[in-house]
């Protein structure tokens, strides 16, 4: 039991921190620009595909650097020449624009790489167990994923709280016009934040691609969970994004590892049902089976009991 819990916790941390790399971008862009970017997970997918293409030419490590940079530049261009123009037409137009962009990217990916899953692998040099505990291996690549995502979190925290640019970003989150009136180029700042957020999503794609498989549906698989996280954490709250990402990552991972079923839980309460009961399918449900539903269940509960999210300040 202890071994399962330890590995589930480690896997939950890896997933949680990966989700944070995406959720932080969505929440930062939302709080600054008021744009809920539905195409954010598409940049994550582009990161994986770009890295796959680059790694075939010049190897994985250059791809780890180049792919997020490419995605970041693409994100900045989307903001500069797309969103900034659409912004004049209001928030609904922006929302529809990012929706359309998500479809466009998905179609483009299928056009260039096809519908099949790509054979994108982590570097062979990291194909070993980082450590073995209770007879189970923890892959080195997952360790690298955790290191990269934790470093990104520390870096993001440092930039936002200790650098002048970060402080300007913090000020622009609440009072963009006042920041512009002090001589700071707020539209350019928006472009940089959008680009940086996209690059982070791209980096998440590069490190997750080899583990979660690189295929055209990878954006929609993770995209919906990212939005659940942003709503649970509270729209616009970075702390909320971190807590909710870890919560979802760990919750899912523990649920999968637990192997508990509805029958076990009912047995604890002293309730049992005959095997031929009309609702037997419901009693036979196990936690690993419902694990993918848990984030959405949590979302519904949060929306009922705390609509602004765990750390959100906005009411709408």
């Amino acid at each position: 039991m202890a071994d399962a819990l330890i590995f589930a916790t480690l896997n939950g941390l890896v997933t949680g921190m990966l989700l944070f790399m995406l959720a932080s971008g969505v929440t930062l862009i939302f709080s600054m620009m008021g744009v809920l970017n539905f195409a954010h997970a598409s940049f994550y997918m582009l990161g994986a595909y770009f890295a796959f293409a680059i790694s075939q030419q010049i190897g994985f490590w250059p791809a780890l650097l180049l792919a997020p940079m490419l995605v970041g530049v693409l994100g900045a261009l989307v903001e500069r020449y797309g969103l900034r123009q659409v912004h004049k037409s209001g928030q609904v137009a922006e929302l529809v624009f990012t929706f359309g962009l998500a479809f466009l990217i998905e179609e483009a990916v299928q056009l260039f790489w096809g519908r099949a899953t790509q054979d994108f692998r982590s570097p062979a040099a990291l194909d070993f167990a980082l450590f073995t505990l209770f007879g189970q291996d923890f892959p080195a690549w997952k360790g690298v994923m955790l290191c990269i995502s934790v470093s990104i979190f520390i870096g993001l925290y440092f930039v936002l709280t200790r650098t002048r640019t970060g402080i300007i970003i913090q000020a622009a989150i609440t009072h963009p016009q006042a920041v512009a009136n002090l001589g700071h180029n707020v539209p350019r700042l928006f472009m940089v934040v959008f680009g940086a957020g996209s690059a982070l999503a791209g980096l998440a794609g590069v490190i997750a691609g080899p583990v979660l498989t690189t295929f055209p549906g990878m954006a929609s698989v993770l995209g919906s969970i990212v939005f659940v996280i942003v709503v649970i954490g509270g729209l616009g709250s970075l702390t909320g994004a971190l807590v909710a990402s870890l919560l979802i990552g760990l919750l899912q991972s523990w649920a999968i590892a637990s192997g508990l079923g509805m029958a076990d839980l009912l047995a604890l309460l002293g309730v049992s049902f005959p095997p031929d009961h009309a609702l037997r399918d419901l009693w036979r449900l196990t936690l690993p089976q419902v694990a993918p539903l848990l984030p959405y269940l949590l979302l519904v509960l949060i929306l009922i009991f705390r609509p602004s999210g765990l750390f959100g300040k906005r009411e709408s």
Partner: peptide, 18 residues
């Protein structure tokens, strides 16, 4: 329209133009 989450010093330093 001061920046409420930033310190007084940070508020003032943001007044310095790029």
């Amino acid at each position: 329209e001061i920046f409420p989450g930033l310190t007084v010093r940070q508020n003032l330093l943001l007044g310095i133009k790029p």
